[in-house]
Design a binder for these strands. Structure first.
Lengths: 236, 236
DNA sequence: CCGTCTATATATAAGCG
DNA sequence: TCGCTTATATATAGACG
């Protein structure tokens, strides 16, 4: 953008690189802010210059919120760094980090339990609602499946029992042991009424455009060319 | 950029907002990638759509590394939180305990997100379902309350604005000015918020200001209209 | 939702003080 | 480094399939 075209490769001239960095950085921050406002998106942007200086932008000036939210997605799966390092100083740092993440998780958990909601903003409440709604669907589906299996199993047992009513209990057990997974755990028929619950969740919003399969978009690294998925089109 | 100028305010039309989001998002990711390559910078970009979907870009596809680095900046500031235990051996013990609790929490979190359900038994599923159902009720109640409050606030603001239509743009902004709760790292990002957006309209479209109210305010850095956060940085 | 096209608005590479 | 100007390269709003 400017007098000359530019190759997507590291700018060798140190001066130019610094100048370009400065200009593009502000452009990037500006655009981050714009999309945040225009599209009501939550944005977090972190930039380290070559020299290691930090620049950042975050919607509502609160990077913490963004990062917490981000970690929810990767369910804070970030590697629990093994502290097998000997450097004594690193222990307190590692401990502090872990503790901080712990607190984040605890807070999240309270939120998932519908507690401590006053600390959340509207957007976060909506997001939480949506998340739980989705979770609940998964859970009900899973429960449905579990119940169905058990249902079938019990029906089968009942059927066989009717065939040979003369058998005593011990014999029956022995006969069925091959088929029953984990004998002691089978639930009585009473739990079957739960099935109806599954069908109660009818009018819930499922607003996803069928594209929800990917939880996040992974960017492949590339030192020269723009990944194609990122390029709308490269004609003109 | 395009057929018409655009005001820096939330796009009300849902369709347009979504389309713009999609376009700008790829633009933003592209630029993040470009500055990363051209200027040899480390970039981490996180974007949540209104609906809560996550998009991200990270130099070398490793957000983790970026966040790690970011946190070093943060935690360097508040390392004081750690327990003041002196015995060297106790550190590893404390760390292990914390880690164990952490893992429990992580597993719970996954369950709350409707993941990893295979490890749950029927009773646990039912319990989880019940818990989430209850949570959802609380959350929806809280959300409704928040919405109501916001409505009231906006109505009040609108009313006040109608009372004093004489003020010019800057005076209004300055009147609303508060100290931004600068997040306290290298860059004291002043915040920018919805309210200021109302006044940023260049004087064309006077569409309704269906906007949210956030306490912090944009700080005019000079006689330019450029927000402070994007002003050139004076560094070494 | 995704891709295309076109007119315009913006971003920015270079050059200069 | 810093600002400012200018010529161009890009990004993208709006419309359509």
């Amino acid at each position: 953008m400017g007098r000359g075209r530019v190759q997507l490769k590291r700018i060798e001239n140190k001066i130019n690189r610094q100048v370009t960095f400065s200009k593009r950085r502000s452009g990037l921050l500006k655009k981050a802010h714009e999309i945040s406002v225009l599209c009501d998106a939550d944005v977090g942007l972190i930039v380290f210059s070559t020299k290691g200086k930090l620049f950042e932008y975050a919607t509502d000036s609160c990077m913490e919120r963004i990062l917490e939210r981000y970690e929810q997605y990767s369910y804070a799966e970030r590697k629990l760094t093994s502290p097998n390092l000997e450097s004594p100083g690193s222990w307190s740092l590692e401990y502090a980090k872990l503790k901080a993440r712990m607190e984040v998780l605890q807070r999240n958990q309270r939120h998932y339990m519908g507690e401590d909601l006053d600390s959340l903003r509207l957007k976060e409440l909506q997001s939480l609602e949506h998340q739980l709604d989705t979770s609940l669907k998964h859970i009900r589906t899973r429960k449905d499946k579990a119940l169905q299996e058990q249902n079938n199993l019990l029906a089968k047992k009942l059927k066989e029992k009717e065939k040979e009513p003369a058998m005593n209990q011990w014999e029956q057990v022995q006969n069925h042991e091959l088929n029953s997974p984990s004998f002691g755990l089978t639930q009585p028929l009473s739990s079957m009424n739960m099935i109806s619950d599954i069908y109660q969740s009818v009018g819930e919003n499922t607003s996803n455009g069928g594209n929800e399969a990917t939880p996040n978009q992974q960017i492949p690294s590339s030192n020269t060319v723009m990944p194609q998925w990122m390029m709308p089109h490269m004609d003109n």
